[in-house]
Amino acid sequence: MEINPLDAVDATETGPALDRAASRLNMLVAITVAILATFMGICKVKDDNIVQTMQQAQANKLDHWAFYQARNIREEIARATIVQLQLAAPGQSAAQQPAYATAIASYEKIAAEQKKKKDELRTLADDDQKQYDGANFHDDQFDLSDALLAIAISLLAVTALTQQRWLYVAALVPTGFGLAMGLAGLLGGSLHPTALIRLLS
């Protein structure tokens, strides 16, 4: 025995009235799905660009920290050389003292330059991390929007199959939240359910 999904519809609606109601509901479902699919496509383009920004920020951060370590090693070598020269200088003749003083001053200058450049690289790496975190914030919004709209489309598919109006209304709940998160991502909004994102990450 085959089950007819239309059997679940209110028995008071029969014939042409039932057909019109089902047709209207199907039209609403189709329009809603089309709007959601278009919106998800737009969000996907923006989200892909954000992911590229995150990848670039991460690569820049790694490069800056690598250069930071190189500058740090150079600074430490310069400072170790200064200590060696300072320890050796007292045992040298008066004629050699100016040469040691010049060498010490030269290495002190190198150490100071390396420290300055090292600090600049630390600042750049911190800026890269902030850029990554900012992009990740919006990436989370798009991820949540995508999940919510996928749930909504699933509910709409069941609505079209069963012709249950209450399912259409239920589908509007994740639709609303999904659209809100997507718009927040597109417009750079601060809407971000941190606890939920943490649970899903």
Rank of each mutant, 00 (worst) to 15 (best):
M1W: 13
E2R: 12
I3W: 13
N4W: 02
P5V: 03
L6W: 08
D7F: 08
V9A: 01
V9Y: 02
D10C: 08
D10T: 12
D10W: 15
D10F: 12
R20S: 12
S23F: 04
L25I: 08
L25H: 06
L25P: 06
N26F: 03
V29Y: 05
A30L: 13
A30E: 14
T32Q: 11
T32V: 09
V33G: 05
V33M: 13
I35V: 15
L36N: 11
A37W: 10
A37T: 15
T38R: 10
T38S: 14
F39R: 04
C43D: 09
C43S: 12
K44W: 11
D47I: 03
D47K: 15
D47L: 07
N49H: 12
I50K: 11
Q52W: 14
M54R: 15
Q55P: 04
Q55L: 13
Q55H: 10
A57R: 04
A57I: 07
A57Q: 08
Q58C: 03
A59D: 09
A59G: 06
K61I: 08
L62Q: 13
D63V: 08
H64P: 00
A66D: 08
F67P: 00
Q69T: 12
Q69M: 10
A70F: 11
N72P: 02
I73M: 05
R74Y: 15
R74L: 13
I77W: 09
R79S: 03
I82G: 00
Q84I: 10
Q84P: 03
Q84L: 14
Q86M: 07
A89K: 14
P90S: 04
Q97G: 03
A99F: 14
Y100L: 06
A101L: 11
I104A: 01
A105I: 03
Y107P: 01
E108N: 10
E108L: 04
I110Y: 11
I110P: 06
A112C: 06
A112W: 06
K115C: 00
K117W: 09
D119G: 05
L121Y: 00
L121R: 00
T123P: 01
L124M: 09
A125R: 00
D127N: 15
D127Y: 08
K130C: 04
K130N: 12
Y132E: 02
A135H: 01
D139R: 14
D139L: 11
D140G: 03
F142P: 00
D143G: 09
D143M: 04
S145V: 00
S145H: 01
L148F: 06
I151F: 08
I151N: 11
A152F: 05
I153F: 07
S154E: 13
S154N: 15
L155F: 10
L161T: 12
Q164H: 14
R165G: 06
W166L: 11
W166H: 11
V169G: 01
G176F: 06
G178Q: 01
M181W: 08
M181C: 04
G182W: 01
L183G: 02
G185E: 04
G185N: 09
L191D: 02
L191I: 14
P193T: 05
A195P: 04
A195N: 10
R198L: 10
L200H: 07
S201L: 08
S201P: 04
